[in-house]
Design a protein around this nucleic acid. Structure first.
Ligand SMILES: [Mn+2]
Ligand SMILES: [Mn+2]
Ligand SMILES: [Mn+2]
Ligand SMILES: [Mn+2]
Lengths: 219, 219
DNA sequence: ATTAAAATTTAGACAAATCTAAAAAAATAT
DNA sequence: ATATTTTTTTAGATTTGTCTAAATTTTAAT
């Protein structure tokens, strides 16, 4: 079956909210989609008749197996396009989300198949998020934020959860990108700030707020 | 200003029909867009209030300067995507039109700018049609069909007007593609068929119907 | 010049997606 | 346990794009 742009956006947003809370509320989805609660209720009735969600009045809702499969496929398209935009067209990573938000709705299956080949089967998007494979399998990478990591172990930056231009600017300043190798040298308990050492650059200190948004894994 | 997918499809279709006839009729546009005449009238009123067409009740319509500029920009996007699909993703040229029909509506200006750079500023799409530049200028290539061309001059295939899978199959059989060098060796007046010689291959005869769809220019 | 046919427009309806305002249900506070 | 606040749903309206059927205008034919 084929879904409208609007339906796809709802499905994907439910999926993302479910990563945090098993069951999603009307208000949170309205907020995520920048729409009104009444509109969410309307759409949910439709998604229910289309057998994509489990929904009980006043009780919240979640994607069923079918809805989940479709959501993951949209995520796959989104992230492949983001990879294309950054690695082929040379966009900065803070500029690609909006564009991928449109591209993800182009419906050709063959297109995505060929794009994947063309990009050489990338595993993660420019923000470090995993790209689901054709079967919907998502590689899980155990990752911790810089605020949680133990001291003096070399780690690789695997993803950054805040993808704003402001964050990008700051990360550039610190010479941090996806894949960058670094080491936490100290945690300051007073304000939660963290001292890090990025390759040959002198040590520097980042705030707890920043540290919480940078995720790393051991190499 | 920003236009809906539907508005853009109407604008582009009017543009294409205008290449044949200076002023476009309601029925021909309905036919082109696979919609109903009543829907065309409705949309034309909207395009008129948006200052994109000159329209007089019962008298047909045409794009004004503003509408024309927008149409050409959509054509530009369409053809750049077609080029991408064929030359980067490896699609056959008969499979790309539908997909480009969706991709052309992705609204980012920066996207098309970068795509153009990435593709190295292609001049023509996979069907040999010229790609308008950023300013809307379209390179005009004087071209004649194989049915009209004079005998025994070497010519280059510049475009093919019928882009169906059936035509592609036939062209492949004759080893003809965009850019192929060939020579017309005879015209048969009885049925309008044409004998051609494609590089090292033995001479062959193509029907008038095929000849009329293959356009060439002198090298 | 009438008449018949074809093309175009209008009138009115409908589906999708959205909204505001009011009603209903659930959660929270006293 | 009741009252208050918050969340969610319903009712009803709106916008966009489409359609069918009927009316109007234009074009073609006699
Ligand atoms: Mn989207
Ligand atoms: Mn991403
Ligand atoms: Mn289109
Ligand atoms: Mn083309």
């Amino acid at each position: 079956m084929n879904y409208s742009v609007s339906e796809e956006n709802y499905i994907k947003s439910i999926y993302h909210l479910q990563q945090q809370t098993a069951t999603v509320t009307t208000n949170s989805l309205a907020n995520e989609l920048k729409t009104k609660p009444a509109s969410v209720t309307d759409m949910l009735k439709k998604l229910q008749t289309k057998q994509l969600v489990e929904y009980e009045k006043y009780r919240g809702f979640k994607l069923n197996a079918n809805g989940n499969k479709i959501a993951i496929n949209i995520v796959r398209r989104h992230r492949l396009w983001e990879f294309f935009l950054v690695n082929k067209l040379g966009f900065e990573w803070d500029k690609v989300h909006e564009i991928a938000e449109e591209l993800e709705h182009v419906s050709s299956i063959e297109l995505i198949k060929r794009l994947d080949i063309f990009l050489n089967f990338p595993q993660t998007d420019p923000h470090g998020d995993p790209i689901p494979d054709t079967n919907g399998k998502i590689a899980f990478i155990k990752q911790l934020s810089l605020a949680e990591i133990t001291v003096k172990k070399n780690v690789l930056v695997s993803s950054v959860s805040n993808q704003s231009p402001e964050m990008l600017e700051m990360l550039k300043h610190y010479h941090i990108g996806i894949g960058t190798s670094l080491k936490v040298t100290r945690h300051f308990t007073f304000d939660g700030s963290v001292e890090i050492k990025v390759s040959q650059y002198p040590s520097c200190i980042i705030s707890e707020q920043v540290a919480k948004n940078i995720f790393v894994h051991h190499d």
